[in-house]
């Protein structure tokens, strides 16, 4: 009996975290006047709010922009951060420890301090309203380097030595031998980078003003805050749903990896 009450309480606690999303899904399908109803059900379900969003803003374009930016950054972070992590963990050269210290130092700098000068840099480079502004400052991640460095340290030395004897270059060793054997590290860095980039909204708001280059979170924010949603809650929720769905799908597929990755690093989105 005590056990049953325990599970009921736990289930209620779970509902507090899940029900809002169920409610949001159905609310976005209900007509405006029914939105404040508590019940998720309705006789009048329709995709009206979604159609309104598609009509008023180029949300598909924003989705593609987000996809291009998030994928480019993720691929770049995996390639470069693993390369630097490999050099710092498996190669010997002068200044290696200095570079490692510099990376540790950069992780302690609050982002607030570089935000304004970084924007000025984008203006000077003529990069405002371009993909470069969204992608290039995120191409290497200090967190990625540290994670790969740690992970590669444990890679068996004998395999690397054997590959060297066979005349394999260090790039070959990294990308053809170590990569296929480091899937967990690649998944961890990949998921965290993709999610953080996908959900980032401050940086796009700073460097992008043209609608055609806006990322999805940025466009949804401006749509909601600006007048275009005309204070219609249903339409706002529909645009928020479209922003949430891609990450929720990825989360459902890689759920365990998501939780393990973020528990491992303590990095939040």
């Amino acid at each position: 009996m005590k056990r049953i009450i325990f599970y009921i309480l736990l289930l209620i606690a779970t509902l507090i975290f899940v029900y809002p999303f169920i409610w949001m899904t159905t609310a976005s399908l209900r007509p405006e006047r029914e939105i404040s109803y508590l019940s998720p059900l309705s006789r009048n379900f329709s995709f009206g709010s979604y159609i309104t969003v598609f009509k008023r803003i180029p949300i598909v374009r924003a989705f593609l922009n987000s996809l291009i930016v998030s994928s480019s950054i993720t691929i770049s972070v995996l390639i470069f951060s693993s390369m630097i992590g490999y050099a710092l963990s498996r190669l010997k050269f002068k200044g290696r420890e200095l570079i490692f210290m510099v990376i540790l130092f950069t992780m302690m700098i609050p982002f607030q301090i570089t935000l304004i000068p970084l924007y000025v840099l984008m203006v000077k480079l003529g990069w405002t309203d371009t993909y470069q502004a969204l992608i290039v400052p995120g191409m290497i991640s200090a967190f990625g380097i540290l994670l790969f460095r740690q992970y590669f340290k444990a890679f068996p030395k004998s395999i690397i030595d054997a590959a060297r004897v066979d005349g394999c270059s260090d790039f070959g060793i990294l990308y053809r031998i170590i990569w296929p054997n480091s899937i967990p590290a690649l998944v961890t860095v990949g998921i965290i980078t993709f999610m953080n980039t996908w959900n980032n909204v401050l940086w796009p708001l700073v460097v992008i003003r043209k609608t055609s280059f806006m990322t999805m979170p940025q466009m949804v924010v401006l749509f909601t805050v600006g007048g275009q949603a005309e204070a219609q809650v249903g339409v706002q929720l529909a645009s928020a749903m479209m922003l949430a769905i891609p990450i929720v799908i990825i989360y459902m597929i890689f759920q365990r990896h998501f939780i393990a990755s973020m528990a491992h690093t303590g990095i939040k989105g």
Binding site: F17, V201, A240, L243, I247
Partner: peptide
């Protein structure tokens, strides 16, 4: 679940 979903 709320952790992975955008703050927006």
């Amino acid at each position: 679940l709320p952790v992975v979903i955008s703050g927006v």
